[in-house]
Design a protein around this nucleic acid. Structure first.
Lengths: 190, 190
DNA sequence: CGGCCCGCCTGACAAATGTCATCGCGAAGC
DNA sequence: GCTTCGCGATGACATTTGTCAGGCGGGCCG
């Protein structure tokens, strides 16, 4: 519904034409490859491939396309990863709707559009401190799995999983895995 | 942004006029009390007062107003509580945008609009099995607090908190508090 | 009025989780 | 070729968490 509503609204702008829509990340990449638009506007949380990896693929396969990220959550790590993937803009959904068309025009003219406060937060927070393995284990813990489940799923020993969780807990300065998961998600580290 | 976009879109319909917008639950109640609209369209997850209690208050204070809930999550418990609060419609955001105006017209003509599949799920799932105390404790556990934190915050003994959590875990047929919290939230029981 | 029942609270035990010290192994540097 | 360094893995210990078997105390029926 949201996507459709924004598309309708953007179509009303005289200088903007909506050439395609997609519900998933993979679909977005496929549609962009065919329609070769000037701008691709992506959400991050989507079924299937997430918006950031989709952004990377679109940048690679359709180099003339400016990729913009529009997301609900202003997480520093999201911004960082979006930029590394080659995005030209990073907008959060709580800015007024009028801004969207304006941002698209600015991106088309070659500018990069980023909320200054969020940029500062992303830089001051520093890069993701979690090692790949720690991220993997922490991600496997989000759904409330027990240590044994995680160990089985990742083909690790029980104790190993504990250590990774423990170090993730310390790096996030949390008191247990639940807080660690939440803080990591807040930062966009997963 | 979403609210603004939907408002713009609805304003384009010849027979619909948007008379007010609000960012929080309390604001929504206040605006409705002043503008006395035919229809109030509410989200559930909002800062401040949540949409369901706001719906109840609007129904009480502005009886001629039809309250509609538009939410991201199709949770049975949400639907149940919305209906108990007096809502006339329950829509999820993944239906197409065109449906929204149609649903508003149907509500105005006195119909109640509910997704049939969701209604079935809400009825077959039965009512919320958690006692008030269990809900309270489980809600206090969502942010990863330790048992001691919860006990202190709720002025209970440590062991008591454990028992409530334990029984909540069994009632949700989960394996630990994390799964219990997730399942309860899925059902809209918190 | 008395007993019964049920929701709420407390204490002891078992299992899981979190912490620490240590080891193995491959990559980077000399 | 060797050393050094750091990530990944393992095992033993303290703490937290989950389970269970009871204790009040207030409402409902006989």
């Amino acid at each position: 519904m949201i996507r459709g509503a924004l598309a309708s609204l953007l179509s009303l702008e005289p200088d903007i034409e909506v050439v395609g829509e997609a519900a998933t990340g993979d679909e977005a990449v496929a549609v962009a490859a065919v329609t070769r638009p000037d701008v691709a506007l992506l959400d991050i949380e989507m079924p299937g491939k997430d918006g950031i990896t989709a952004a990377g693929e679109i940048c690679r396969e359709v180099p003339e396309c400016h990729v913009m990220i529009l997301t609900t959550f202003a997480r520093p790590g999201y911004l960082r990863r979006a930029m590394e993937a080659g995005a030209s803009a990073f907008l959060v959904k709580d800015s007024p709707a009028r801004e969207l068309a304006a941002a698209i025009r600015r991106v088309l003219s070659g500018e990069r559009v980023i909320d200054p406060g969020l940029a500062a937060a992303a830089l001051s927070a520093g890069p993701n401190p979690l090692s790949p393995r720690e991220r993997e284990v922490l991600s496997a813990a989000v759904d409330g799995s027990t240590i044994n489940d995680i160990a089985a799923r990742l083909h690790l020993s029980e104790g190993t999983v504990r250590n990774y969780l423990s170090s993730a807990i310390q790096k996030t300065s949390a008191r247990n895995r639940i807080e660690a998961v939440q803080k990591a998600q807040d930062q966009g580290w997963l």
